[in-house]
Amino acid sequence: MVKLKINIVSIYSVAKKEFEDNIRNKWITTLITIFVILTIATSYFAGSREADSSSLGEMEDTITVLLSISVILIPLIAIMLGYATISGECESGSLYVVLAYPIRRREVLLGKFIGLGAVIVFSTIIGFGTGGIIIAVLAGTSEWTSYVVFIGLTILLGLLYLSVSIFFSTLTSKRSTSLGLGVLIFFWSMIFGIILMAVYLGGGGSYDELLTGETTFPNWMWWAILLSPMDMNQVAVLRAFGIEEVFGFSMEFPSFMTLSLLVTVQLIWIIVPLILAYYVFERRDI
């Protein structure tokens, strides 16, 4: 077992610097603002509807709408934060100054993950926190534990995309190259869904039967979802709320698709890219 020396103070310094620098980045603040406005709008309309219909099921509708916002915006914020965090600093030259100090490269990497992760935690809590308060005020707080789980799963999704994009940012020394990789990371889940569907249909599957509910997705397709972060997040949220119908589609989850499995796989998705980033970053020329 290799012992890795690490200085907590240095990690904290980098984390704090990353948070302070990025929370003032206008792209990030714009995305967070859009996120907050959409959440508030959704929860306001859903909450006020709930107040007079007194139907508990309405909370599920709110979550499915919020989910369709978060599953796009949170990865986008995470990728914006991470895609050029190493390569961009290489290109601008600030990384040379930092690494000339008595700090280890792994400390810089970990500090960046924690600091940028804090931006994601901050924006998610501000976004969904305000939405949650509005729902609670207008419609009562019947399902707040599930709502907290929802926020937790969204943070997990953000950290996953952050970890992957930090890893990709260690691979190049140019911001422009990293941008291409960032776009690839963002569209991965969407491309993946199309590929999966193509394989399914190509193998004799029927789209019509899926729509009418005559048949369900085969098991291998459920397992394949573990390769797609956005899908994992959506299934995890729906499972957490026990929702089995989304925008008219019925979703019958196989028994092995448990919340704990999905969370564990997502944690692996966070840890593995960080380890890879460590190996690449420690060994490369800056």
Binding site: N7, V97, I103
Partner: peptide, 21 residues
């Protein structure tokens, strides 16, 4: 060599810092 760099300081070519700090 963390401790070696305690005695060292470096100004790279075309230095740059963090825009928002």
């Amino acid at each position: 060599s963390v401790h070696v760099r305690k005695n060292l300081s470096y100004l790279p070519e075309r230095v740059s810092f963090y825009d928002h700090l």
